[in-house]
């Protein structure tokens, strides 16, 4: 590791090292368990399961990288793509932190605060899941209580209602077109629902960037 490396370069350097080691560890888990339990996967079921899952997940995963990297920053990306739960936790957490501090995602201040926010969120999530695993027997009836079910299921509307009001109130002109487009699409296309919202994020982002560019060039922003 070179001493004269800039902060950003070192984030990429260490991010790659941690990411590649973790990737190898994750792939090693099924391999080790196959050997330890002398188990061979059921090939036909494996192929069917992969056909049902992999194309969709890889397509979404590919688009997610290009969509989320500019919003999360480098450090935030290396952490978020390892710890997961990006749209329902890490990204709103980082966006809120940057917004309150008044810094932009593409500045170094934004990069640093986004990393701090996502690192803290990842540590807290890991700790809560660990506690949940340790005490799964007593907490299971609470988590599965039908009274609480709507609260857990409605986390995205509860999250984006609050986040939306902040961003829309500060960018009213720019918000109109993407919101109208998404409302029309989600209301009139039955295939669009909670399960497919992930695919619509890049559509919304690209459309808004296009609209923003036109409005900026025309001097409307």
């Amino acid at each position: 590791m070179k001493k004269n490396m800039s902060y950003m370069d070192s984030v990429h350097y260490y991010g790659r090292i941690w990411g590649l080691i973790l990737g190898a560890l994750i792939i090693a888990v099924p391999l080790v368990l196959c050997i330890a339990f002398s188990a061979v996967p059921k090939w036909d079921a494996l192929v069917k399961g992969l056909i049902a899952t992999l194309p969709m997940y890889w397509a979404v995963g590919f688009i997610e990288i290009f969509t989320y990297v500019p919003m999360l920053g480098a450090g935030g990306t290396y952490l978020s793509f390892v710890t997961g739960n990006i749209s329902n936790l890490k990204l709103p957490c980082a966006v809120d932190a940057m917004e309150r501090a008044g810094v932009k995602a593409n500045s170094e201040e934004g990069e640093v605060l986004s990393t701090i926010s996502i690192a803290v969120s990842s540590i807290v999530t890991t700790a809560i899941i660990l506690l949940g695993v340790l005490f799964i027997v007593p907490i299971q009836p609470i988590l599965e209580n039908p009274v609480l079910e709507p609260a857990f299921e409605m986390i995205l509307p509860a999250l984006f209602g609050g986040l939306g009001v902040v961003f829309i109130s500060k960018n009213v002109k720019l918000s109109i077109a993407p919101i109208i487009l998404m409302l029309v699409l989600f209301i009139f296309i039955p295939a669009l629902n909670k399960g497919t919202v992930g695919i619509m994020v890049p559509v919304g982002v690209l459309f808004t960037l296009g609209v923003a560019r036109i409005m900026y060039k025309k001097g409307w922003l």
């Binding site: 969509t67 500019p70 919003m71 749209s87 990204l91 966006v95 932009k104 995602a105 593409n106 995205l156 509307p157 999250l159 984006f160 209602g161 986040l163 939306g164 961003f167 829309i168 500060k170 960018n171 720019l174 918000s175 993407p178 919101i179 487009l181 998404m182 409302l183 699409l185 989600f186 209301i187 009139f188 039955p190 669009l192 629902n193 909670k194 919202v197 619509m200 994020v201 559509v203 919304g204 982002v205 690209l206 459309f207 808004t208 960037l209 609209v211 923003a212 900026y216 922003l221």
Partner: peptide
């Protein structure tokens, strides 16, 4: 503007999803 547009694009998709069952 680029940065704001990205966040708004993401938020608009989630706001759209909220209305998916109103029909």
């Amino acid at each position: 503007i680029f940065s704001n547009a990205m966040f708004l694009g993401m938020i608009s998709a989630f706001l759209g999803y909220v209305f998916c069952d109103v029909t």
